[in-house]
Every structure is written in C-alpha cells, then in structure tokens.
Design a protein around this nucleic acid. Structure first.
Lengths: 218, 218
DNA sequence: ATATATTTTTAGGCAAGTCTAAAAATAATA
DNA sequence: TATTATTTTTAGACTTGCCTAAAAATATAT
C-alpha cells in the first residue's frame, strides 16, 4: 500500500504523462505538488523501490504498468467521488475538487465498487473527464476544442480543460454545462471570438473560453 | 485544525470519558490506541497547548468544552458515514467500522451537512449508537441491557455494547437486528441464560449475549 | 567548443509522531 | 511508615516527508 504522499506523487506523474511521453522531470512534479525538486528526488527513490516508477538519475521518471494501474485507481476514486458529490449531495461542479482530493485516499475496494454501482457506473465525472475502470483503462472519446470547430459546425459540450472554480462559475453564469448543444454561428477573425447558439440563445464568447471547452462533434 | 493523529487521540479520550468522570490516564489512552504511554504523554502536551484538554502531570487528562465539541464532531462524522455505508452501499453492520475510521477524518462541513440531509437526519448509527448533532450534543435514550429485563418483559432492540464483527455476525445469524421486538419467556437461574421470543420464534441465548444487547422497554 | 545558465542531485537539518530505556512520581503492601 | 510495585514522564533515537544550500550534471549560448 501507499502513503498519502506517495499517492499524490503517483497521481501527479500520471497526469503529467498524459501530456507528454517523455520522462517526467522532477521540476515538473515539484511545481504541480507545490514542493521542491529535492523533495521530489527523495520520494522518487522510494517509488522506484516500490517498482511503480522507472528512475534514472537526471533522466526523469516514467510510471511502470503497476504504477499506471495504481495511479489510475486513485483517479478513478477521485472522479467517482466527484460524481457522488454533485449527483447525490448537490455540490456544484466547482466545489468538488478539494473534497474529492481527500476522499480519493480512502482505502476500501468494496467501498469504491459499491459506490460505482450506487452511481450507476458513470463513465465521466462532472467536468467531463473519463473515469478509469477497475483495471485502470479509460475509454477516450474523440473530442475537439470548441475553438477548432468551423462556422456552422455544432457539437455537444463534453468537458472542460481548465476546471478552476472561476472558469466553472463563469460557465454556469453563461448557461454552458455538459451535455448542451452548441452551434458556431460566426467566427471573428481579428480576435478569434465566437458567436455561438446554445439553447436558442445567441452568445458571444472569447477565444480563451473556446480554448477550454471540449466538444463532441455532431 | 487537527492532524489525523490528534483527531484519533481526541476521539479516544472522548469515548473513555463517557465511561468515567475521572481524569483519563495515559495508559488507558495508550491501550485503546495500541501505542505506548510515552507517546501519549507527548501528544497530550500538544493537545493541551491547543486547549482541547486539561493536563496536569501524573493526573491524567480531561477534555475542555472545545475538546468535547471537536471530538463529538469526529464521532458524528464516523456514525453518519456508517449509516451511509449500510443504507446506501449495502454494507453489513459488521463491515462499516474500518472504513468509517477513515472517512471520519475528511474535512468539509458542507460534505457532512449534506450527507446528514441525504440520509434524512438519522439519530442513530447501525449499531444503535446516537449521532451527535452539529453542536456535539447527543440525545441519550433510556436503554437497558437485555440481561436486566425480567420474565415476560419485552422491548425493542436498540443497540449493541460489543460491536466486534464476530458478535454482530452472530446476531445476524440468529436474526437479531436493531428494531426487533424481544420478549423474555424465561430466565435460567443456574447460568443466567434466557429463553426469548423474537418474531414468533423461540430462541435460547447465553448471559454473555444478553449482556451486550441494549433494549428499550416497551 | 568553451563558458554560462539551468536542472537535478546530494548533504545535512527540521518537525511530527513514534519507540525504548531510564528516571521520577504515585500507589500499594507489609 | 517504610518499602516495593506500578504508572507516568523524560531523554534520546528512529522514520517519513519536507526544507535549504552546495555540488554535480546537463543544456544553452556565444
């Protein structure tokens, strides 16, 4: 089993690996965890002994298969708890992260299996991120940034890239939530802002917003 | 806020204080927490500085009002989670303790308030123990050990004293659960065993069992 | 290619929480 | 009450996870 700290390192490396396929640098990990590179080096040695990462000095780390599976399981727990908080306890999608950060470390496979069933085996969390299955596999959906859709194209909003509470609350205010259909009415060349149609309402959104919304084309 | 370890000490002292009104000895705490008296002394000094216990060397500790409230809140969380596990996730009453020991340390007042509502504001956990309210008060019910009832008296089973899984599983096997009505048919003088009626079935139970079952007379 | 800048690792230290062994205080017994 | 036994505290040490500062390795730039 892993300590709380080890689990947080695993999860961080897991997320970083989804962005690149190079070895993950101690600095990158340190930044995400708000700690120092020297602390990361220490921890990585422990993780390496537990055979969840491959570590060569100055070359960064990579998760082993065991490491990937372990990390995916933590992510699975995090996202299932997020679904629970939103669907059962009326949390809004910008409030769940902090609490899920704690709940993801509860150790009980029965708990998480039962929770999964109780929630009706959800495939995605409240931000549209996929929930890994028991074996750590996640089914990726072909999704595109809203900013890449062309005029007259439309799609379903399936996720957010930035899930800071500021951004999520902004989306709430605009009436943009997961599952909503959005159609591109127009694109402004000079600032890349978009004119969109959502639930029969016309809305103008900036390129920054459009770069943080994932769509499934339809 | 308290560390995980501090919370466990608080909870232990809280439970011990319900049994006596003397100062709680370091040894008693050490035994409950499976640690050493010297470790307890160390921790008590910290708790004393945080003003949750009154500590005088060699005289044991007592919780302050703040300490009582803090401890009761942990117990509240523990018992609410137990209800959740049994009612929503189909755990049996002998499986919940270990998981609730972890869940009780999750920090989020919104979480626990919402959970309370989601469970319909339960007053007792699956073992019949009362759930403290937000202010730390618990309403005690007048309950008697089954062994103190006399022939022909009857009552509702409202709790267990021993909540080890062996005992709870034994009760399950015999069909004895919270809420069931039990009538004393006969008491054997030589071994204090009881002949009882439960759901139209006659059962013989030992004094040891009767000493661990709480009844509300009816 | 050599000098400079950046990244990573090492070395040594600190706080939390625990331990063992010994000392001090309290309780029990003769 | 004096002596022995028990309980509690102190002292010193260990592990985990973190830190700072300095050294070593790698990357960048002239």
């Amino acid at each position: 089993m892993f300590t709380l700290s080890e689990e947080n390192y695993l999860k961080t490396i897991y997320h970083l690996e989804l962005e690149t396929n190079k070895g993950i640098s101690t600095n990158a990990i340190a930044e995400k965890l708000a700690t120092k590179a020297s602390s990361v080096t220490d921890m990585i040695k422990k993780l390496s002994e537990k055979e969840v990462v491959i570590y060569k000095k100055y070359k960064g780390v990579k998760l082993t298969d065991l490491g990937k599976k372990s990390a995916a399981n933590i992510v699975r727990k995090h996202r299932l708890w997020e679904v629970f908080l939103v669907e059962k306890l009326d949390f809004s999608w910008d409030e769940v992260h902090e609490v899920a950060e704690q709940l993801e470390h509860i150790k009980s496979s029965k708990l998480i299996d039962q929770l999964d069933g109780f929630l009706n085996f959800p495939t995605h969390d409240p931000h549209g991120d996929p929930i890994p299955d028991r074996d750590g596999n996640l089914k990726t959906i072909e999704k595109s940034l809203l900013s890449t859709l062309t005029k007259n194209e439309s799609g379903i909003c399936v996720g957010v890239d930035d899930s800071s509470s500021e951004f999520l609350q902004f989306l709430d205010k605009k009436g943009i939530t997961l599952g909503k259909k959005i159609t591109i009415l127009d694109k402004e060349d000079f600032d890349d802002s978009l004119s969109i149609l959502i639930e029969d309402k016309k809305l103008s959104i900036s390129n920054k917003i459009a770069n943080n919304l994932y769509m499934k084309k339809s």
